[in-house]
Amino acid sequence: MVTKLDETELKRLESQVEHGGGGAWEYLCLVRKLKIRRSDKVLKHGLLILNDPKKRSSIGDEEWTLYEQVAIAAMDCNSLDTARDCINVLSKKFPESKRVGRLEAMLLEAKGCWEEAENAYSSLLEDNPLDQVVHKRKVAMAKAEGDLLKAIECLSKYLKVFMADNDAWRELAEIYVSLQMYKQAAFCYEELILAQPTVPVYHLAYADVLYTLGGLENIQTAKKYYAATIDFTGGKNTRALYGVCLCTAAIGQLAKGRNKDDKEGELHTLAAKVLEKDYKYRAPDKLPLLTSTLKTLKLSS
């Protein structure tokens, strides 16, 4: 999970490293810890460290982790030669290693040799049928080939065994959303909320899915989940604030003619107020836009 503190630290280190202020190794460590995809920067600064024998020896045994990190970043940036070189160094150091074997298969993937990569992964699975990463790579490969239904099938099979893998649930939810299968996506997000009830991003995503599904009941639930997101983020999540406003407008439209709930009258005005305050502080020139939007939603007081 990337907290606000991590984010500011990452931004600080990134600008420091980009302007030649040093701290490249700390930056690479933070990127690895937070699992952030900054392949171009990892490739650039990682190679600078690896090409300098003095810097390389100063990080000690972590050198091999860095080789792996740079290899994956190089595949992501399509510098396949660099990836090849890194993997060669690693396989010289660790012959017969499964982890290096995985990298080899990933390189095949990056080259686009799907069948060979598939064979490589299958042989890795024969040695260790419970290798989670390889299972996930197979799903990713199906996704890369554009066969999302196969990816879903693989992922469901995987989740039957590894039910506690939150990342996989999230991936499945995202695939379902991209296929507009919102009911299934909602199920995945419910699973995620059950597993990690304090992560506001899951609440937000679930609320988005419910709002998209539509219908009075779903939108009422969505509003509750937007409210939970606001609760967990201290009202600093703009999307959740907008969500509450939109839900209220949608409920007002759907429940037209029926008796209105006076209890819910306060939440959206508060959300609108916070939005206005936030815009005044961070983007004053966009404020008229916000006020007119809120007015069309008939929310501004």
């Binding site: 990337v2 699992k35 995809r37 992501d76 993937e109 996930k136 799903v139 967990f232 009202g235």
Partner: peptide, 19 residues
Amino acid sequence: SSEENRIVSLPENLDFMIF
């Protein structure tokens, strides 16, 4: 909701990264 605990984003799902 404090600054050090407030989650602003999830890690990218690097296990499922595609090239």
